[in-house]
Structures are given as C-alpha cells and as structure tokens.
Design a protein around this nucleic acid. Structure first.
Lengths: 145, 145
DNA sequence: TAATATTAGTTCGTTACACTGACCATATGC
DNA sequence: GCATATGGTCAGTGTAACGAACTAATATTA
C-alpha cells in the first residue's frame, strides 16, 4: 500500500490540512460549533480593517456568489458584520465582529501550540528557515494576498 | 487593505492551492472536463497497486461515504476501476484505469513545469532544501500517507 | 455631460459534495 | 460459537459550489 513518492503539492497539503483540522477542532471545542470549515477558511482571510467580498473570493478560490453566501452565514451568527465602504458606494467591507474575534483568539492559540511542536520536530533554526522560504514562495505567486 | 502577517497554515496553503489550480486547469484543458476538483483530489491519492476506500477517505479528509461517492463518479467516467482485495473479502481496491493514467500524465507534466518555475524563483539549492524540509514535516504528522 | 462600459454585489436555479445514521457482509478475538 | 470490530454501501439532509442574469454605482470617453 505504498502511495509512492509525494509531489510538492501534497507535501504542502499534508501539514497545511493537519494544522487546519486541529485548529478547527479547537475552535469547535471552545463552543463555536455554529461555524463551518468553508466559513472559517473565508473568515481567516478578512483583514483587520475590513475586506471586500470580491477580494475574499479571490483569496479563498471561490466565486463571489459563494463568498457572499458564506458571509451571510457568518453574519447571522455574529462572527462578522458588513459596513459600507467609504471609498465606493457599490462595495461593502466585511469585518470581524465580537464573536469572530473571540473565535480567532482560540485559533491563534492553537496555531502557536502547533508551531511549537513543529519547531521541536525540525529544530528551531530549520523551522524558521522553512517559514521564511514558504513566505518567499507565497510572495512569488501573483495572487492577491 | 493589508491582510496582516500570514500564519504558517496560510503560507502552506497559498502555494499549494496555486499549484492545484494550475494543474487542474491543465487537466481540464487537455480534454478531461468530466472530472471535478474533489474527484481529482481523491484520485491523486490512489497508490499504484490500488487503495482501499477507507484509506483514501483518511488521506483526503472526508468520510468513507463521501469517498465512495467520488469513486463511483470516477468509475463511471473511466478514471478508475474497482477490484476485489485478495487479502480481505469485505474490501475492494480502487486502481487507476486507462483514462485516469492519461490524465495523471498531463498533471505530472504541469507539476514539473511549476517546479521548474519555483526552482528558478528561489534558486535550486534553496528550493531542494525547502522540499526536503516539507518532507520532514509531512513525516512528522501521524496521518496515514 | 450624456452615453457606454466596468465593477461590486446579490438573487435564482441547479448540481455536487459532505455529513449522520442505519445497515449488510466479512474478519477477528475470546 | 458468539460478540465485537471493520470495510463498505444506502438513505436522507443540509451546505457549498457554480453559471446566468440582474441592480446599482463608478469609470471612461465622446
């Protein structure tokens, strides 16, 4: 049952998905059980000063229709709110609301825990280097981040 | 519109998803338009000597019911076939079929192209090091790979 | 400044996906 | 031999994904 050598995509995917799974479980266990994984994936891409639907859609790789639906759900449950974009009356800015900020704190704490594990597994220097290289690679993609 | 500093999860996600998107588009453009992204994600985890539904479900992070549905679709379109598992009469092995192998070749070619770009962007030594470190990190997760 | 084209976002309708629960068949342990 | 665990499917439901069509506001250009 040897799956064969893993390509780069899978090598990126495996730790990514492991982290996501653990963080999402931590958030759920902390009482935020009315958020789904696709909603959480969108939520974490919202910037502190608010993000437009279209930007979120691009970051998450979904259509703006889908992003709109996800934001509606998040809004219904108090994770985010919409505010008018002062620069463009067509647009609105999605911004984290109280419940969203509280959930984000739980997520951040779990990420810290996982990073500590990974540092231990690879050694601090090697881990820090990995993060820097990933950052460089992410910059190289021409996506809106 | 500064999204703030990106956590490790996102740093892994961004290049992963970029690669996936490009590979999937290449496969579609090559005429394999009857495969969906979730199906392709499962397909690429099938080992050369066949994989069980349960193993695929674990690798892809879906339930075995979902994996079963995805395999059915892939089977209908000639990407995979099921064969009985000689070691366990309850199980069956999912294995790539002709159309699946042809599509996989297209995917592999596109991955090579992307890796060449990434090597160029980071420098060969740094890129090879990154891949090794990712491999180490993937090994550290206790998931079935 | 009036006509035209773009862009931001929503609504509608449809399909695929993902989950839980329940179930059958085979294996395994005592 | 009987209880229990495991591999897989079936049924039912809700969410998420898409394309197409639409409204409203902004840019563009004549």
């Amino acid at each position: 049952m040897d799956p064969g050598p893993l390509n780069v995509g899978l090598l990126l995917f495996i730790p990514y998905r492991e982290l996501e799974e653990r963080v999402f479980a931590a958030v759920q266990d902390a009482g935020y059980s009315d958020i789904t994984l696709p909603q959480a994936r969108l939520f974490q891409r919202i910037s502190a000063n608010g993000s437009r639907i279209t930007d979120l859609a691009n970051r998450v790789y979904v259509t703006k229709q889908t992003a709109s639906v996800l934001v509606n759900s998040l809004e219904s449950n108090g994770y985010v709110r919409r505010m008018p974009d002062p620069l463009d009356a067509r647009a609105s800015l999605v911004i984290a609301d109280a419940r969203g900020l509280a959930a984000a704190a739980v997520a951040a704490a779990e990420i810290q825990r996982i990073e500590a594990e990974w540092r231990k597994a690879l050694g601090t220097a090697r881990y820090e280097r990995l993060v820097r290289d990933l950052d460089e690679l992410a910059k190289h993609t021409n996506r809106p981040q």
